[in-house]
Computed example of a mutant assay.
Amino acid sequence: GFDGFGSGGFDFSDMFGNRGGASGAESLGDLFGGLFGRRRGGGGNRAQRGADVETEISIDFTEAVRGATVPLRLSSPASCQTCGGSGAKVGTSPRACPNCGGSGLVNRSQGAFAFSEPCRDCRGSGKLIDQPCPDCAGEGVTTQTRTLTVRIPPGVSHGQRIRLAGRGEPGRNNGPTGDLFVLVHVTPHPVFGRDGDNLTVTVPVTFPELTLGTTLTVPTLDGRVSLKVAPGTASGRTLRVRGKGIERRDGRVGDLLVTLRVSVPSKLDDAARAALEAYAEATADHDPRAEILRRAEDGR
């Protein structure tokens, strides 16, 4: 039967000597295209898109939140400015390869078949350069250092990639330019953190402030704000300050999330110690661990 066709038992690419490079389908296309006199339009002179380029930048936390315009120095291939990308010495021009007629392909007969293959004289480019440009050695491309202005949008995250269309390597034979991808590294802030579009901050408070209630002054990225703490607020509670987070370009604004943590003094003077001992004596009947002990016993 014909079971071998679906199970890897027979490979047309092996039949025609294709063991790498073009796919079997492309080899068959070149084969039958040459057999019937149809020349494929895409040798070495076909327009090719330029390669994408990736680089990295580091910005601080505030720039990531608010957005920034950052200069970026980039060394990468670019069209030769001396010859304008033609590869020919100034004052001269490439000429069409006489062997392939400028197509970059030649037909070769082998028995009953005709094959299309890259022209050896012009290496598939379709053109010959008699006097190469001295700056790019006839390649039309040189490595250049350029300075780009990169606009970092507000709210960019650490590890995010920003795409700059058309800022990559130039294309070959008038092909389109590739893209530039910028990998962003954000330096951590000593005070603020981030949770999506929300900013986070942990604020130390005293036990009396949580017990009796108070109004705190807490920092924001652009100043300070007053925050009311209700009496009996637990340590670790997170309060929300609306509209003090990250503002997106579409108008969305996050919040500032303030987590309250009791600050325990490492040392007490005599007056503070006496006051604290008096408080402990006054509240001796209250066991803060009674509930958790009961629930643990119930769960056994």
Rank of each mutant, 00 (worst) to 15 (best):
I246W: 03
I246F: 06
E247H: 08
R248E: 03
R248D: 02
R248W: 00
R249I: 10
R249A: 15
R249Y: 02
R249K: 14
D250A: 05
D250V: 02
D250N: 15
G251I: 04
G251A: 05
R252Y: 07
R252D: 08
V253C: 12
V253G: 02
G254L: 04
D255C: 07
L256D: 06
L257R: 13
V258Q: 07
V258K: 04
V258C: 10
V258T: 03
T259W: 10
T259S: 13
L260H: 10
L260C: 08
R261F: 01
V262N: 02
S263C: 00
V264S: 03
V264G: 01
V264W: 11
S266H: 12
S266N: 13
S266C: 00
K267V: 14
K267S: 14
K267R: 13
K267H: 12
L268C: 01
L268Q: 08
L268E: 05
L268A: 11
D269M: 07
D269Q: 03
D269S: 05
D270N: 12
D270A: 15
A271C: 01
R273A: 15
R273V: 01
A274S: 11
A274F: 02
A274L: 13
A274K: 14
L276P: 00
E277C: 00
E277I: 09
E277T: 10
A278M: 02
